[in-house]
Design a protein around this nucleic acid. Sequence first.
RNA 1: GCCUCUUUAGCUCAGCUGGUAGAGCAGCUCACUCGUAAUGAGCAGGUCGGGGGUUCGAGUCCCCUGAGAGGCUCCA
Length: 647
Amino acid sequence: MIKITLPDRSVKEVEAGTTALDIARDISEGLARNVLSARVNGKVVDATRPISEDADLTLLTWNDDDGKATMWHSSAHLMAEAIEQLYPGVKFGIGPDIENGFYYDIDFMDYQVSDADFKKIEDRMLELARQKQGFTRREVSKEEALSYFSRKGDEYKIELIDELEDGEITFYESGTFTDLCRGPHLPDTGMIKAVKLLGIAGAYWRGNEKRKMLTRIYGITFPKQKELADYLEMLEEAKKRDHRKLGAELGIFTFSRQVGQGLPLWLPKGAELRERLENFLKKVQRKMGYQQVITPHIGKVELYKTSGHYEKYGQDSFHPISTPIPGEEFFLKPMNCPHHCEIYNSSPKSYRDLPYRIAEFGTVYRYEQSGELHGLTRVRGFTQDDAHIFCTPDQLKDEFKGVMDIVMIIFKALDFKDFITQISLRDPNDKGKYIGSDENWDKSEQAIMEVAEERGLDAVVEYGEAAFYGPKMDFMVKDALGRKWQLGTIQVDYNLPERFDLEYVGTDNEKHRPVMIHRAPFGSMERFVAVLLEHCAGKFPLWLAPDQAIVLPISEKYHNYAEKVLNLLNNSEIRALIDHRSEKTGRKIRDAEMKKIPYMLIVGEKEEQDGTVSVRKQGEGDIGVYSVEEFAAMVNGEIEQMLDIEV
RNA sequence: GCCUCUUUAGCUCAGCUGGUAGAGCAGCUCACUCGUAAUGAGCAGGUCGGGGGUUCGAGUCCCCUGAGAGGCUCCA
């Protein structure tokens, strides 16, 4: 007999060899029907695996992420089985579960497959699911595994097996499909009730551009039809938040074929929005001792040879600009740091000049691969809210803290709560590949960790993710469809001060090398505005909204009064406009609601008599009658509160 | 750059197996002068992304090319 401890700490005594599914059945049939897999002593395994020793057991269902993962991984096998039956002779790469569903990479050989085939595959999957095929786990020797896939002629599986140790190889069989697989899997395919194939894409075998491109099919499955419907509806909703759609609707930006791919054109509303963001940051930076600088959009090739960027960007980016002078070449700047280093170098520095903080909204150009361009989040010309801080190693920690505070101020002002903080440090096993002294690295890495700790940030630490020139901290936010985008970044740099021979005279009258911090709290204005649009679904915070209020006269008779109200609002620095159309009030309200204008001010006979406005808040409805002064004070108070920042 | 798909009016989309373009919304004009999410009528708007081919005839079929979408690889 063995002891099984359940999550509620209750203990069951069962015979050795009992399965998690048996235990579930013992508790209730209903539970047993919903068990997808089980966590036994911390490891997720098949619910049908016999348990042979005392164990902590958690039964995993659709409510557990690991349960979902089991379902989706099994669905990948189910899809493979269906595809193998429909397209005999195809070869399989890998087919894992992912955050939302699963995929399988398949070499379709001579078959031409497109999303038009999805229906057929889905139908076959459902048909196979209804057969309630079990998943049979089998331990096989490496030799046996190799011989199976050699006979089948699947070189991808053979390659995978080659890299495995004998004795750790398992096969899973379900229906007519046998796969090299670690598991775990569902008790049977009958639990898969709804299937949807979501997309088809090329994917390089093993993620290597040099190797064959396989066909990847993405899909998702659910234990209930209703859940699939909900999921598809959620995707539809997410599409409505897409910044590319909202950006066009709200007149923020556009693209032009003539101007070129990835080169956004900011429309008036977008330009004003961006200016507001820039002014906000400038104000914060001024308080924190930054100085604004301005540098040109191009620089001589020699500048980038000095910085080392030539090697990185020379070949695969915009090619140099030549001039009438033979041999003279300029580059569009892919970053601002080299220019800023030259500003540092323009006059001798003493320790008294440090920290030296220079900031610039610097527009840079990078020739991103055409397939990578994406709305405003990935473009070829963009403006970084860049700044470089040159300081002594001792000042590094305080400076880092200051930068982090700026990021937090911004996130607060824009109500960003769901962001991911990542700290990237050296690979401790390969310290040789990094530039700069061990001592300095230790110091900066420690500083970053301490600052995160002191500010109570829940950061993910990634070892080996640091740039060769220094450790960094990045801030990531998810877009409407859950894709992660990096926004703010703070990077320590030991490389450029070296390359540009930056110096300062210390208290000891000797020359020393400063440390450099690159930082961009927004990341880039383009990407930030994109993420902001998706974050607020076009409903900008009041202080940023292009139009903060719209005056809606009931009829033409009240246009004069509306003008008067508008004037008062403008005097109070509130951005407002009037809807002069001869439409019914209901229509004007609807249109203003759709345009997401935060406040609607309805004026008619009563309001004109009393010198008031009838206020309606976007998304909320009527909030009562105010004098224009009261309303202005309310709006300005609300804005002040949002921007209430302590520096 | 690679794979799959898409490309018709400012926007969202129809247009079956080839027979010389259609709707809704937006826009403009007129009427209505209106109280918290769509008043009515009329008008205008497209060399069907571009180029080439097949055909008596191409939005529709084929080839090249531009742009967009979802991925992969990049980027960080």
